[in-house]
Design a protein around this nucleic acid. Structure first.
Lengths: 203, 203
DNA sequence: GTCTATATACAGATAGAC
DNA sequence: GTCTATCTGTATATAGAC
């Protein structure tokens, strides 16, 4: 891990905000340098390329996810833990209205270009998925845990996209009671999904 | 409506594919010109700016949505109509794996910048929403139709994002039986959502 | 209507004085 | 470590011959 000098931190934080607000490709190094109050030429002392700043931003997001998970693990039960994840998104509702989910946005944008950035962005969503999967396993839903986790993340990401697109915080807010009921139903049904081998019947 | 000359059509189609595959900001006019086999300088005879090509692409997407809706209206019942919408996405599963949902992607990207493009992109998702809403109304779910439509679109968009991010067609495929069951449950329950005035109890 | 050549602007990245 | 000046490439867009 590189030493976290003050300027380095400022650059990463500025880039993190700008990538979220404007997207990775639209954001210029000059934008980042200006917001971080670092002269453009000096940026290159800390990051040899724009891609390396993005890697630092993604690594920052990843660390943030681990912190979030650590807090969520202290929930009094698994349902609260899952709902707590949504709550973290709702806590930043204004940012989601104006810029969408930072991770979802970066995945969407970066998955279209090749290179290591795609992998780093995907990793964050995948780590989230694995954690959610673990929660469903803890609920005794081992068999369907992956599908359920996928649905859980998809529902939140989808609502974040619509919240962003329609600039309406209510869309994400209304998800809370819906998810709460959904989790209850999943638990009581002990299985919500169709066995893979039977999928053809439905297609 | 501008006269649809051959070159104009080729330019819009090339732009449509490239915006989907690479994103709007990454795609250059040179890319579009090359794919459409039109000399760069000639592009400007048809479209004065890059933004105007994008407007044409969005208008093309919008027309495509209307065509899709027209076909779906011929379904034998509303459930088939709703599932048919998902089927249209699944019919292009390979494109969704490599590039995600074209509309969702453009909304995500364009909602971050201002200008008329944002509005045009949002309109497509909104038209979709209104149509889905109408389906739920047809099912006798007038009271919750907007929320249900929002959930319906969110679930599909979320799964498209994950399909794209994880490059796994199964994610979207598995949605079909899930949505089928979800629609059945929504119909039989006649209400899946919480009245707005009671939301606070769940937060 | 078509297409080459080019203007203009600005991006990422570097050189080198301090 | 810092910062100004600048190189180089490439994007959008225009001019103007054909």
């Amino acid at each position: 891990m590189a030493r976290e000098t003050d300027k380095r931190i400022r650059l990463v934080n500025a880039a993190k905000v700008l990538f979220h607000k404007q997207g990775f490709n639209v954001t210029t190094l000059a934008d980042i340098a200006q917001d971080a109050k670092v002269p453009l030429g000096n940026v290159y002392y800390y990051f040899k390329t724009k891609e390396l700043i993005a890697e630092a931003v993604l690594s920052n997001h990843n660390r943030e996810l681990l912190d979030t998970i650590k807090i969520l693990e202290e929930s009094k039960n698994i349902k609260d833990s899952l709902l707590g994840y949504l709550q973290f998104e709702i806590d930043n509702i204004e940012q989601i209205v104006t810029s969408g989910c930072p991770i979802g946005g970066l995945c969407q944008e970066l998955a279209k270009q090749d290179g290591s950035l795609t992998i780093s962005a995907t990793k964050i969503l995948n780590d989230t998925l694995l954690w959610v999967e673990k929660q469903f396993q803890g609920l005794g839903l081992e068999k369907d845990s992956r599908e359920l986790a996928m649905q859980f993340i998809a529902i939140i990401q989808g609502h974040a996209l619509l919240t962003h697109t329609f600039k309406d915080p209510k869309i994400l807010m209304q998800l809370k009671p819906i998810l709460s009921i959904w989790i209850d139903k999943v638990i009581s049904a002990k299985s919500i999904s169709i066995p893979i081998e039977k999928i053809e019947e439905y297609i």
